[in-house]
């Protein structure tokens, strides 16, 4: 017993070194596995305080560029106003009702909230954004995030009361399902951590005719991301002779280096859809029902 105490006293510094190393590595690897650590909510609020102060200063310098972009977005929305359209062959004007639940039986599925980017990097292998809307504003995990000109940016992975962390598309663990607009084929978009301007798109069969500049849009099969939004354009077609699939280099629609304003998209039927999914899974995998 005495020898053990002597041993501990002799190597105390080394043992505490090992202990601190173990603690750091544990933080690191659990964070990567579950995408988030629960204790990080508090830390999130703290870094959020500094980031919002820094952001106020930074905004001043990027105002003009951001203003131009918002103006362009506004412009495109104004053009969609129903008052701009007249049906040519009758004298009746098309009027669209803007109440969310109107007489035609349309139900609002997605709701968009604006948020400001507090912190953003592009030069790491795992890039995250911090935005100034949190659980008290109704932001929850898994919500989609879009840039001010409507291109996909990422998804929310961690929320604190006033801030949330967003995993950007520029993250080596990020996977998103997308479509080629022209052919309607679905593929998986990922990032190879080489250049923050380009993403990689796999799984598009070579039977498709893909040309440079083809538009890539968000897929139909995501619960949290609205379909048909811009992701990027094909910038390079890499011939891979070993498979029957293209590897496409996609230039991102959003400019990740100058993100200032973003939209967080909430699916109003998210709970219902995920619950149905869970229950289906439970029903199929239930050992009692599934006796062969």
């Amino acid at each position: 017993m005495r020898n053990i105490f002597l041993f501990i006293r002799r190597y105390f510094t080394f043992l505490s070194f090992l202990l601190l190393q173990a603690a750091s590595l544990w933080f690191l690897f659990t964070y990567n596995r579950f995408h988030r650590a629960k204790g990080l909510g508090v830390a999130n609020e703290m870094s959020g305080f500094f980031n919002s102060n820094y952001n106020m200063a930074e905004d001043f310098f990027t105002m003009r560029e951001e203003n131009r972009r918002v103006h362009k977005m506004n412009d495109s929305l104004l053009n969609r106003m129903p008052t701009n359209f007249v049906i040519a062959d009758t004298s009746v004007r098309l009027v669209t009702d803007s109440i969310p639940n109107d007489t035609l039986g349309r139900v609002r599925h997605f709701i968009w909230r604006d948020a400001q980017v507090m912190y953003n990097t592009v030069n790491s292998e795992k890039n995250y954004l911090q935005i100034n809307k949190g659980s008290s504003n109704g932001v929850r995990d898994e919500m989609g995030v879009f840039s001010s000109d409507g291109s996909l940016v990422g998804k929310v992975i961690n929320v604190s009361p006033n801030f949330s962390q967003v995993m950007s598309l520029l993250h080596v663990q990020n996977k998103a399902s997308v479509l080629v607009k022209k052919t309607g084929h679905a593929g998986i978009i990922s990032w190879d951590a080489k250049d923050p301007r380009f993403l990689l798109l796999n799984n598009i069969p070579k039977s498709d005719s893909i040309a440079m500049g083809d538009t890539i849009i968000t897929g139909n099969y995501s619960i949290s991301i609205p379909p048909g939004m811009m992701v990027g354009r094909v910038a390079e077609i890499i011939q891979d002779n070993t498979t029957n699939f293209y590897v496409l280099k996609i230039r991102t629609g959003a400019n990740f280096q100058s993100l200032q304003q973003v939209f967080v998209v909430e699916n109003l039927q998210y709970d219902e859809q995920t619950k149905l999914l869970e229950e289906t899974r439970k029903k199929v995998d239930d050992p009692k029902r599934n006796t062969r």
Binding site: L20, Q21, A23, S24, L25, W26, F27, L28, F29, Y31, A37, L40, A43, N44, M46, S47, F50, N51, Y119, T121, S124, K126, Y128, Q130, Q165
Partner: peptide, 11 residues
């Protein structure tokens, strides 16, 4: 905390 990589720089 700022870089969102808990433990990496600490180690």
């Amino acid at each position: 905390v700022f870089m969102m990589t808990p433990g990496l720089h600490a180690a």
